[in-house]
Structure formats: C-alpha cells, structure tokens
Simulated assay, not measured.
Amino acid sequence: MRRFARTLVTAALATAVVAGTAGWASAGSQSAVTGPPPGSAAWRADTVSGRPLPDPARATPSEVARFFAALDDSLALGLVRSHPLVAGNLDGAPLALRYEANRLAVLATGEPRFASLAAPGRQILAFDPRGRGTVAEVFGDLGRAAHVSVVVPGSDNDATTYDRPRAAYTGPAGMARSLRSATGEAAAVIAWTGYTTPVGVGLDTARGRLAEAGAVRLARFTDGLDAVGAPDPVLFCHSYGSVVCGLAARHTDATDIVAFGSPGMRAGSVARLHTDARVWAARGPDDWISDVPNVEFAGLGHGADPTSAAFGARRIPAADVAGHTGYFTPGTQSLKAFASIAAGAGR
C-alpha cells in the first residue's frame, strides 16, 4: 500500500510539473555533451619540443596556463593550427589563442549552421560541434576587464540557434550585449552556452540530469577564467540555467550569483548552496515560470523558489519586466540592478 501511495504522489508531481510549465511539448531526451573535445586523442599523442601536451581530460586550468606560459608564440600557434578544437576548448589557455583556434575550428567544420561564428572580430572562447553544439562568446576585452560576468542561459539554446534572429535583448548573446552596454567599457560579459540544454518542455526540463553535467562544465570554465587572470565572475543564470548555477555554486569562485526567471536551484535555501557568493533573485510579474510548482521529489522539480523570503536571496526589483525573457530590456529595473551587481557595487 505504501509503495502504491508513493507511485501516486510521484505521478501527481510529474503531472504538476508538466502542467505548470505551460503544457507538454513533445521533446526527445537530450544526451549531454561531456568530456574533452574531438581530437583529444591526436593532441595527447603529440608533443612540443619533446614535452607532452596537457591532457584535456585531466590537466587543471592552472596546469594548462603554466604549460602555455613556457611556450614561445610560434610553438603555441603551431598547436592551435594543428589541434584547433582542443586548443579552443582548453580552459587555462591564452585568450587570443583560443579565439584563433575556435575561428579555425568553426571553418574546419564546413557547416553553414556554424559559419557566422567565424566572422571577423568575434571572440569565440569555446566551440564544440558535437550534438547541437556548444559555444561561448566574449563581449569586451576579457584580458583587461575590471569586471567579468557570465550569462548562463536556459532551454533551447545551443550553437545552432546561437546566431538565429531573436527578439532584442533575449537569448544568451542579446543578454550579454545588453549587460555590457549597461555596465560599461571596463566590463566584459561572456555568453556561455557551454552545456547541453533541454529542448522544449518535457522531462528534461523537470529533471536535473542535464544541469548536473552542465554544472561540471561551468565550474571548470570559471576555473579557466581564474587561471588566465580574469576577475572573479558574476553569474547571471536564466531559467534552467539557474539550476546549473545552483549545482555549480559551491565549485566556483563567483562573487555573485543572480537567478532570474528561475524554476529553482536544487537547494532549499541560500545556505544550502554552500557558496560565499552573494545570491540574488528576480522574477517578473507575468513570467510564466511562476506557474511551475517549486517542488523536488523523486528527481522531478528543482526545489524552492529563489525569490521567496524563506530561500534567503537578495531580491532584485523586476516589476517592469515583460514575460520570461525581458530582464535585460534597456530601461528596466532589473537591467539597472544587474549592471550595478556586475560592476561590483556593494562588495
């Protein structure tokens, strides 16, 4: 009888989660992109001046940074040209080398769906064509920035949709551009579509499986920023991206974590995130995410509402935000607050 009751509760929760996310949309389960990028075996088999190359799967970003610091420019550029997919995704490698490596990697795919990423002047910090593709782009001068922010997006984002036309100030690139414009020239903002996101509204959005894989990648990415001397970042985490940030929180050196349009962070309170970062939360008045039940049971749901008083996050005004993706619209209270946080106000 007890097992039957538990089954009923689980079924009810699944129904509530699906209903709360505005209905079931057929979407296949996604396979998370994990591990080192394609070409890693050839990279490991190579050497430079008789020295082995840092293992993409095992070397820390700090070890990668020390390796490149001991190379002259010509040898480093030779590695970029021989192994662009590995060098472009190697956290801890010099920024300029990664930009060039990813330009070459995009061109090498020969695929029109990625071609725009290789346009002159773009600073692509990571690119992986596996699956739907992952990508990270820098807006501003990351090497000299006094402040760095990372935008972590939610569902339906990948390298194939990254440059697709969208409403202004939405999508990872639109959010990043808007935040940098509001923060100023001393800031750099990274649009980090660096994990496999859910597609549509289905079980992937209600579970934490993809977020768990994404959290590992986000933590390593922020370690890579630290290894090249960038300031500790602010994480701006939208929708399902806030689940990723919640799981990564204890493993990053972020100064601030901002959850907006969030279904939950897989923690019951700020204290349960086990982070020294300041934690902020925002939700607009007509954001459909408010209809998602803030529950977590049998692997479904993402827990407490980050905007609730019990959660303990600092509240960000968002009364003039329209919908689920309007938080970076110029003139909104939320963007003004985001820019202030990104610029280090109050630290």
Rank of each mutant, 00 (worst) to 15 (best):
F260T: 09
V292N: 09
G301L: 09
D73W: 10
G184A: 05
R164C: 07
A271R: 11
A186Y: 08
T332I: 12
A65Q: 03
A254C: 08
S49A: 14
P285M: 09
R98A: 01
G200I: 06
G23K: 09
I190C: 00
M1R: 13
T170R: 12
A87I: 01
T252E: 02
H302Y: 07
G154Y: 03
E185S: 14
F338N: 02
D73R: 15
D223T: 12
A119Q: 14
A126R: 04
A126D: 05
V234A: 09
R98V: 02
A32R: 01
G110Y: 06
G131V: 01
V17F: 09
L95E: 10
T134M: 07
P306M: 06
F260P: 05
R44W: 02
A337N: 06
S26F: 11
V152Q: 05
R66A: 15
S31T: 14
G92D: 00
V244H: 01
A136L: 09
C237Q: 03
F260L: 15
A182G: 07
R207N: 08
T160Q: 14
V135N: 01
A115I: 07
F127Q: 00
P306R: 04
A146H: 10
A93V: 03
P112E: 04
R207P: 04
G143F: 05
T21D: 13
D55K: 02
A105C: 14
T255R: 13
S269W: 13
V279T: 04
P84I: 00
G303M: 06
P129L: 04
S340A: 15
G110C: 07
I257A: 03
A115Q: 12
R220H: 03
R314N: 08
A322C: 07
Y169K: 11
R180K: 11
I124A: 01
D223P: 12
R278G: 13
L90D: 01
R66H: 13
R177E: 15
F221S: 00
L210C: 10
P84D: 02
F127D: 00
A57F: 01
P263V: 04
F4W: 13
A14M: 08
E137D: 06
V151N: 06
R207G: 13
D226Y: 08
A146W: 08
R58C: 07
T109A: 04
Y327I: 04
G39K: 01
R283M: 07
V295R: 13
P306H: 05
Q333H: 13
S242R: 04
S40D: 04
A16S: 15
A65Y: 01
A182M: 05
A168L: 14
T60N: 07
L95A: 11
A337V: 10
S242L: 08
G208K: 05
A57C: 06
V189Q: 00
L203D: 12
P293F: 03
E137V: 05
F328L: 07
R3D: 15
F67C: 00
A309H: 10
S340E: 15
D253N: 14
A248M: 11
R122A: 06
